[in-house]
């Protein structure tokens, strides 16, 4: 390997790292936002809703920028479907339990 090729590769690696660092910064900011929202004196539903949106955004960022799920879509879709299915089951079960609790 020539010295020039090595320098080019190091430069390319640095350029590739920039979006990663930006994603990391966004994840850190979202985590701080979660801590702030959890302590806000607003309604219960508003806090839960805001925390759920922040959580979904964080998971999306991790899957997109760190796991590069879109780049390996053929392999990753089963995992993404599993995550979606698990979330759906949790939501349905909790809503059903809340409904039963309100009826009885």
């Amino acid at each position: 390997m020539t010295e020039g090729a090595g320098v080019n590769r190091a430069g390319a690696a640095r350029a590739e790292a920039l979006p990663l660092v930006a994603a990391f910064g966004a994840l850190a900011a979202l985590t701080v936002s979660e801590l702030v929202v959890a302590g806000l004196a607003v309604g219960y539903a508003a806090r839960i809703g805001a925390l759920a949106v922040l959580l979904a955004t964080k998971v999306g960022l991790l899957l997109t920028f760190f796991m590069r799920a879109r780049a390996s879509w053929r392999a990753s879709r089963m995992t993404l479907v599993s995550i979606g299915f698990a979330v759906s089951v949790i939501v349905v079960l909790v809503l059903e339990t809340l409904y039963r609790a309100s009826v009885h």
């Binding site: 590069r68 780049a71 390996s72 599993s82 698990a86 979330v87």
Partner: peptide, 30 residues
């Protein structure tokens, strides 16, 4: 070239394992 080796055996195997593991965490959180 896809980064995580979209077509490689080990990456596909890991994604499959993660699918089952996601269901495990999902069950506990449920």
């Amino acid at each position: 070239e896809s980064g995580h080796g979209g077509g490689s055996v080990s990456a596909t195997g890991m994604w499959t394992f993660l699918a089952t593991d996601a269901m495990g965490f999902g069950g506990l959180l449920a």
